[in-house]
């Protein structure tokens, strides 16, 4: 089956993509409160050297996410 989306960990360094939706409702609430909405452009600034943590830039806000949070953000292909 062909997926219509990818998730944050799949972004390459310096690559960016538009967020379609957030899978996890609790996370969605938190992200919305932080000003990150579906439609926001998420840019991968750096992947942590040993993986499982991501430093991203969302509409100018810089934040670090762990794997659980990062996979529940669906991005446009």
């Amino acid at each position: 089956m062909l997926r219509r989306y990818k998730t944050v960990p799949e972004l390459k360094s310096r690559e960016s993509a538009e967020a379609i939706s957030f899978v996890d409702p609790a996370l969605a609430c938190k992200l919305t409160a932080m000003g990150v909405r579906p439609g926001a452009v998420i840019e991968m600034v750096r992947k942590a050297p040993f993986g499982k943590a991501y430093y991203v830039k969302v509409d100018g806000i810089r934040m670090a996410l762990r794997e659980e949070e990062a996979v529940s953000i669906l991005l446009e292909l």
Binding site: A26, K30, L31, M34, R62, M63, A64, E69
Partner: peptide, 10 residues
Amino acid sequence: TRSIYIMEIP
């Protein structure tokens, strides 16, 4: 309680 880990980098 489940904790969401998002840390803003100032």
